[in-house]
Design a protein around this nucleic acid. Structure first.
Length: 323
DNA sequence: CACCACCCCTGGACGC
DNA sequence: TGCGTCCAGGGGTGGT
């Protein structure tokens, strides 16, 4: 679930708790969540590429070092130490970084624990293990080996940059948005939400949405990501910030998870299908596949809902909150 | 090179 | 209540 807003909100809640602190010790519970340079790309032991028994020196996991900064690109975090060493955290589907006071109970599926100089701890918890920890000797190595493969960060994407990225591919626009090499940070939830806000059908050809479509889409992406970040992200099941607090943006989803329910803008039942191997929901009226669009496209306009009918209110109140 | 199907993993939802 | 089955999806890999 963690997409850009969840990762950014996590970063913002983590910074005041850990930046300036020294790592007193590190305990690595599952060694195979750690990937080092030279390991085959994405080489987890479960795919048979890296021995699960390889040892990881504690200093590579920032033991003894002071945390100076936490950066983010797309859905990935970089924890920087005063030694220059970098720990890149990727949460995957169910990953979390949780900050716990000194003697709090430790939950299950914790793969790594950093004990800080104030006695508090940071836990890396990831039941499904789609996430991981990437170790780098410096920020330049991280950028060269890993972040260079990512597209521009979605939170600040310009229409010009988006057009240049989408213009290079003939795939559906949703498939392109999910490709982190095209744009970094958008996942399934916010792809659907942004396409709705921009009145673009998810199956429209990425290189065919035009400069007008790119302007609307770039604005919709920035707006929905910023609002979701401010709301603490979307919590459907697993996500929580560094302090364990769930997000609130799931209550403001327009299309994601609402297949069959009436469109908040026009009332048409939302459609869903499998696109780019992902469950995809859209409004067949507001997001037509064909002709150019004449419906409201400003996200500010969209956020003002028309009054709901009694029938709709019943459906809405029974289907939310999604937690 | 571009694109797509498949796979990794686990817990929750659902049917019987 | 319990058990089996299906599903969610980020992103790497390998096939077309």
């Amino acid at each position: 679930m963690p997409e850009l807003p969840e990762v950014e909100h996590l970063r913002q809640t983590l910074v005041p708790l850990v930046v300036g602190r020294r790592v007193r010790r590190v305990r690595l519970v599952r060694r195979d969540v750690v990937i080092r340079p030279g390991d085959p790309a994405g080489g987890f032991s479960r795919s048979g590429l890296v021995p699960a028994t390889h040892t990881v020196p504690a200093r590579e996991l920032l033991s003894g070092q002071r945390i100076t900064e936490i950066l983010r690109h797309g859905k990935q975090l970089a924890i920087i130490a005063d030694s220059g060493r970098v720990l890149c955290v990727h949460l995957g589907m169910t990953g979390r970084l949780l900050h716990l006071p000194a003697r709090a109970h430790r939950p299950d599926h914790v793969h790594a624990v950093w004990t800080l100089d104030d006695g508090s701890r940071v836990l890396f918890r990831d039941p499904r293990r789609f996430g991981g920890l990437w170790i780098f000797s410096g920020l330049e190595e991280l950028r060269g080996a890993r972040w260079s493969a990512l597209g521009p960060d979605a939170l600040t994407i310009t229409s010009h940059a988006l057009r240049s990225a989408l213009g290079r591919t003939r795939r559906g626009v949703k498939a392109a948005l999910l490709d982190q090499r095209v744009l970094a940070g958008v996942g399934n939830i916010y792809a659907d939400e942004a396409l709705f806000d921009a009145s673009l059908h998810p199956a429209r050809r990425a290189d065919g949405i035009g400069s007008d479509g790119c302007v609307r889409l770039a604005r919709a992406i920035r707006t929905v990501l910023r609002r979701a970040t401010d709301a603490g992200g979307s919590t459907l099941r697993d996500y929580a910030d560094a302090r364990g607090a769930p997000g609130a943006f799931q209550r403001r989803h327009r299309v994601y998870g609402r297949a069959g329910l009436p469109c908040a803008r026009c009332g048409t039942p939302l459609e869903s299908a499998l696109l780019a191997q992902r469950g995809t929901t859209w409004c067949p009226t507001c997001q037509p596949l064909g002709s150019p669009l004449t419906i409201p496209t400003n996200p500010e306009t969209i956020s003002r809902e028309r009054p709901l009918s009694l029938h709709e209110e019943r459906i809405f109140s029974s289907s939310s909150p999604l937690v």
